[in-house]
Simulated assay, not measured.
Amino acid sequence: MERIRIGLVGIGKIARDQHVPALAASDDFDLIATASRHGRVDGIDGHDSIEAMLAARPEIEAVSLCTPPEGRFDQAMSVLRAGRHLMLEKPPSATVSEAQALAKIAEKAGVTLFATWHSREAAEVDAARDWLATRRIDAVRIRWKEDIRHWHPGQDWILAAGGFGVFDPGINALSIATRILPEPLTVLSATLSVPANRTSPIAARIAMRSGDAAVDADFDFLQTGEQSWDIEVDTDAGLLRLTHGGSRIALPGEPAAAGTNEEYPRLYRRLADLIRSGGSDVDLDPIQLVADAFLVAERRSVEAFDF
């Protein structure tokens, strides 16, 4: 099958750690150009902007966008207006309305739009979804706690307006929860802890419901030592534990299982399938939950934070 020529935009940590290796190993894509103000990929044609990249390489059929959400809308519009297929790193945009607008524009242009949630592709997420499908859900506990200084060193944008703060990793947990729970999630209340010198939260608690089940989410960006990316679900058949970001699962009466993580290779296989079938995939449930949390939240000022 003919390979798809793709450009990669935003050569930062996530692009280098995940997108570049996934594309290098892909049977579906050829990475032929990049666009970034600060980064380059060895051996790949590099440009300073999307417009320059597309002008220089008109054979590009698809673009993968890995820049921060703030300001991404205009970049995405440039791609869609040029008639190229588009893949968005999570979160897809700075606001829900931006993502909705992009979906409509992509449909009108007749191109694929894929708003990705990489944590949904973790090894044991599908197994958790399938097991929970026939169980009564009694309660859900989400604990997503990591060290911002380790995972986002010096990335001031993440705590600025539009950067999502602790919801940048927290939205990964919400993307898994909305995939595995049989009933939709709704936000009841939230508490956001915002450093005195920042705009976005460094910690958050959210109370939600899924059907009749209470869902408690605890997000923390100041976790040192062991990192926690865990979801526990109490059911009528016992406790399900999905840990290590969805890569390990423990079911009642069964030995724990850990699959091989192929989050980004799976995303690019999905993108190839969408392009070849003429479809799109734009699920906005996780970002809508974040928006709802901001709407109802009590905000608390906490100690200033510096990297």
Rank of each mutant, 00 (worst) to 15 (best):
R3P: 00
R3Q: 15
I4T: 05
R5F: 01
G10E: 01
I11F: 09
I11G: 06
K13N: 13
A15R: 01
D17Q: 09
H19D: 02
A22R: 05
L23Y: 04
D27N: 10
D28A: 13
I32Q: 02
R37W: 00
G43A: 14
D48P: 03
S49N: 11
I50H: 12
I50Y: 08
A55H: 07
P58I: 09
E59I: 01
V63P: 02
S64T: 15
L65V: 05
L65Y: 08
C66D: 06
C66F: 10
P68Q: 06
P69W: 02
P69V: 02
P69G: 12
V79M: 13
A82K: 07
L86N: 08
L88R: 09
L88I: 04
P92Q: 01
A94C: 12
S97F: 03
E98N: 13
A99H: 12
A101Q: 13
A103M: 09
A103N: 09
E107H: 08
K108Q: 11
K108L: 10
G110V: 12
G110I: 08
V111C: 04
F114G: 00
F114T: 02
F114I: 04
R120G: 01
A122S: 15
E124R: 10
L132A: 11
R136M: 10
R136W: 00
I137G: 08
I137A: 11
I137D: 07
A139N: 12
A139H: 14
V140G: 09
V140E: 08
W144V: 08
H150M: 13
W157S: 07
I158H: 14
I158Y: 01
L159R: 12
G163C: 14
F164I: 00
F167R: 04
F167Q: 00
D168G: 10
P169D: 14
N172K: 10
A173N: 04
A173K: 04
A173D: 10
L174K: 02
R179Y: 00
P182V: 08
P182M: 07
E183T: 11
P184D: 14
L185A: 04
L185S: 01
V187A: 08
L188V: 14
T191H: 07
S193V: 06
R198W: 08
T199E: 09
S200D: 15
P201M: 07
I202V: 10
I202D: 03
A204G: 02
A207M: 05
A214C: 05
V215N: 06
V215Y: 07
D216I: 06
S228G: 00
W229C: 09
I231V: 15
E232T: 13
E232D: 10
V233L: 03
T235N: 01
T235V: 00
D236E: 08
T243W: 10
T243V: 13
H244C: 14
I249G: 03
L251I: 07
P252S: 07
P252A: 03
E254W: 03
E254P: 03
A256W: 01
G259A: 12
E262R: 09
E263L: 11
R269M: 06
L271E: 03
A272D: 02
A272T: 07
R276S: 14
D281P: 02
V282M: 05
P286E: 03
R299A: 04
V302W: 03
E303K: 15
F307M: 03
